[in-house]
């Protein structure tokens, strides 16, 4: 039992940090620009595919550097030539714009790399067990993911709260005219923030690509859970996203390890109910509904604490 708890905690923290890596960029963009970027997961996917392509040409480490830069440049371009124009038409237009962009990116990826998964592998320099606990090995690569997530979290937090750039960015959001009068180029600040946000998504893509599966539907399968993280944590709150990622990672992992069901709690069904639809519900284990739990949490949070765990304004 202790073994399962320790291992599940480790696995949960690992998957939570993976989630945070992807959610951080989304949160930054939302808290700085007030734009909910529905195409965020697509930039994550772009990062994974760029990373795959570049690592084939130059190796993994250059890919980890170049792919986010490329994706960030595309992101900045999207802000400069797309979002900025749409911005005048209000939030709904922005949402629709990023919504469409997600489909466009997915189609583009399918045209270039095909629909089946590509063979994106963990680099040999990180492909060995880091340590063994209860005779379970932990790959170095997972530790590397953990490290990068923590590093990004601290770097972002320090930049936003402690540096001059962070202050200007925050000021530009609430008082854009004032910041403009003070001689800063507000447009460029927004472009920069959007670029950095999408580059962060791409970093997550390059790192998660080899560990998970790099394929053209990876954005679609990841997108919804990212929004759960951001909403549960509190829209625009970086520490909130951090906490929510960990929470969801842990919940999902522990749910998988539980076998409880209604049948286990209240005893098996009577013979009369055995062939009915009730039998299905009765027999379902917590492990089986693990993938749904985060969405249930999303609904509960929106009902009982609409500003999220650490958020300051209502969603």
């Amino acid at each position: 039992m202790l073994e399962l708890i320790v291992i599940s905690t480790l696995n949960g923290v690992l998957s939570g940090m993976q989630l945070f890596l992807m959610a951080s960029g989304l949160t930054v963009i939302f808290s700085m620009l007030g734009v909910l970027n529905l195409a965020h997961a697509s930039f994550y996917m772009l990062g994974a595919f760029f990373g795959y392509q570049i690592s084939r040409w130059f190796g993994f480490w250059p890919a980890l550097l170049i792919a986010p830069l490329l994706a960030g440049a595309i992101g900045a371009g999207v802000e400069r030539f797309g979002l900025r124009r749409v911005h005048n038409s209000g939030h709904v237009a922005e949402l629709l714009f990023t919504f469409g962009l997600a489909f466009a990116i997915e189609e583009l990826v399918q045209i270039i790399w095909g629909k089946s998964p590509v063979d994106f592998r963990v680099p040999p320099s990180l492909d060995f067990p880091a340590f063994t606990i209860f005779s379970t090995n932990y790959p170095v690569y997972k530790m590397f993911m953990l490290l990068v997530s923590v590093a990004i979290f601290t770097a972002l937090l320090i930049t936003l709260k402690k540096t001059r750039i962070g202050l200007i960015v925050q000021a530009a959001l609430t008082h854009p005219h004032m910041v403009g009068h003070l001689g800063h180029n507000v447009g460029r600040i927004f472009m920069l923030v959007f670029g950095i946000g999408t580059a962060l998504a791409a970093v997550a893509g390059v790192i998660a690509g080899p560990a998970l599966v790099t394929q053209s539907n990876m954005a679609g399968s990841l997108g919804p859970i990212l929004f759960v993280v951001v909403v549960v944590g509190g829209l625009g709150s970086l520490p909130g996203a951090f906490v929510a990622s960990l929470l969801i990672g842990l919940i999902q992992t522990f749910a998988v390890s539980m076998n409880g069901s209604l049948a286990g709690a209240f005893g098996p069904l009577g013979a009369a109910d055995e062939p009915t639809w009730l039998a299905d519900i009765w027999g379902v284990t917590i492990a089986q509904i693990a993938p749904v739990i985060p969405y249930a949490l999303l609904v509960l949070i929106l009902i009982f604490r609409p500003m999220g765990l650490l958020g300051t304004r209502d969603t």
Binding site: E3, L4, I7, S8, N11, F134, T136, L212, V256
Partner: peptide, 12 residues
Amino acid sequence: TDFSPYIAKIRA
């Protein structure tokens, strides 16, 4: 995409 929680359960 990541089966490690399931593997942990099998081992346990």
